Amino acid sequence: MRSILAIIIIALMMTGCKSEAISNTPTVQPSELTIIEPNEQPNRVREKVVIYNLKNADGSKAAIETIYQTITEADLVDVFKQTFEEAEPLKGIVKMAAPTYKVIIGSSEYYLLIGDDKTDSIVNLDDSHTMFRLSPSNTIKIREILSWSEPEKVVEGLVMDKKVINQNNSYRVLIATNWTKQEKNTMDEWIEKAEQKHELAWYEIDKEVYLKLNISQPIAVRAANMQLDSLPPIRFAITVQIIEPEVVASSLYLNLIEEELYNQQLLLTPIRPDKEWILDGIKPSRYTVSPLNNETDSTRLEQLSIYIFNSKQQLEEGLKDFQKQTELINMLYPRIYKLNNAMIFYWAHGNMEETAKLSSYFEKAVKLLLEK
């Protein structure tokens, strides 16, 4: 089985020879580093990253610089910018290796030193006395980009599942790729289709991005060209872009909620009531609800409404709409649970001062759904 470590091993083959000296003489002026498209206004400048391969950078001979890569893809430019911004300064006296690359981002110039371990280092030419260490995950991203003869393609997909791997504190999302808005499938149908076409894979991503993603959310991923041979395979994401900031109103998210409630041993039976509360134009899915394998008098069954809004903002507007519609009505109010852009009304018997018999089921289900 190949592992992400293989990426590091390949990149280490590019390591330059060591020396204590670093040349600080820039050869490319900042004015050469921007691209202005013919049809763009001069103040709309697209950044790029220019990477030079260095030879004789140990100071023993005149340094030779040749262009190694020019990166114009916005997401990859952001990888370099974020990686260098997050680099931590090394304390004390540090023996510097000869730099392998010079990296120019906008008006800033850096030396990139490929390390012998899982981390690389940079030196800002404006402060050549300080070395900064890249994080292991950012090192993998930079080494992967350096190994490309051309950028890996961006693929779009839907988030099908999420999980945290506690052994190595990694964050993974299951993505079904080649998704289109025109197709309307359930979550099971999407997974089955993706498995058949080998378009289902786990992607290891940064924690900050993981926490922003929700099940059924469309995203775009640019990944490393190597993967772990598992079913589904495991890939390392270089960039992740959220296509839509909120979870879309779709049957996927409704199915996910239904599945989790079933996992909590609740039986949902769809019904069509004569009257339903329509909130901000959204009509809910209505069910009777009862514990699994527990016979309940059909006349005593409690009910459930699940609303899937287009956004969290619309959810709040829907809640205000419900309060406005019911402010003059004497009625039993539902227990309300909010999760992302979904809202659950649990129509329990008894008033709000009483403990509803199924409250613990819903509380656990909502907690688990919010963690996904």
Rank of each mutant, 00 (worst) to 15 (best):
L369R: 01
E32G: 08
I10D: 15
W202P: 01
D229C: 08
Y110K: 09
E152K: 13
T27K: 15
R222A: 07
Y262K: 14
F132N: 07
Y68I: 04
Y333P: 02
Q241Y: 06
E302M: 12
T269F: 00
E20S: 13
I140Y: 02
I336Y: 06
S3E: 09
K163V: 01
E246P: 09
W277P: 05
H349W: 06
I175V: 15
V248C: 01
L267Y: 08
S216E: 01
L266N: 05
S19Q: 09
G318F: 04
E156A: 10
F132I: 01
S250P: 07
Q241F: 04
G59E: 09
T269G: 00
M131N: 10
S230G: 08
S285V: 13
R272K: 15
S135K: 09
N294K: 09
D117W: 06
K162A: 04
I175T: 08
E363R: 11
S19I: 11
A98N: 09
E189Y: 09
K212T: 07
S216R: 00
N330D: 12
I344H: 03
D117I: 10
L213Y: 04
S305G: 09
A176N: 08
G106N: 10
N43V: 15
I105R: 14
Q69K: 15
A201S: 10
S251Y: 11
I35Y: 06
K324S: 07
V94P: 02
S121A: 10
F236I: 11
A220V: 06
E208Y: 11
V50W: 13
N310V: 06
Q82Y: 03
I114E: 03
V103M: 01
L370N: 11
S360V: 12
L369A: 02
V123R: 00
S108K: 15
N138G: 12
D321M: 02
V28G: 04
K163M: 04
D188E: 12
K364C: 02
E109H: 14
L279H: 05
G106K: 11
L174K: 02
G92C: 11
N53Q: 12
T288K: 01
V45S: 00
Y203I: 01
I219F: 06
Y333C: 11
I105Q: 12
L134R: 02
L113W: 01
I243V: 14
N341W: 05
E144P: 00
R272A: 13
Y262M: 10
A223N: 02
D117C: 10
L231G: 00
I4E: 09
A223M: 08
A97W: 04
W179F: 05
N43C: 12
K372Y: 01
D206Y: 07
S128V: 13
P30V: 04
Q41N: 09
I336V: 12
E276T: 14
R235Y: 01
L267F: 11
S147R: 15
N138C: 09
L301M: 03
L268A: 00
T27I: 11
S360A: 13
I93F: 13
D206T: 06
L301C: 06
L256A: 12
L252N: 10
I242C: 01
E85F: 02
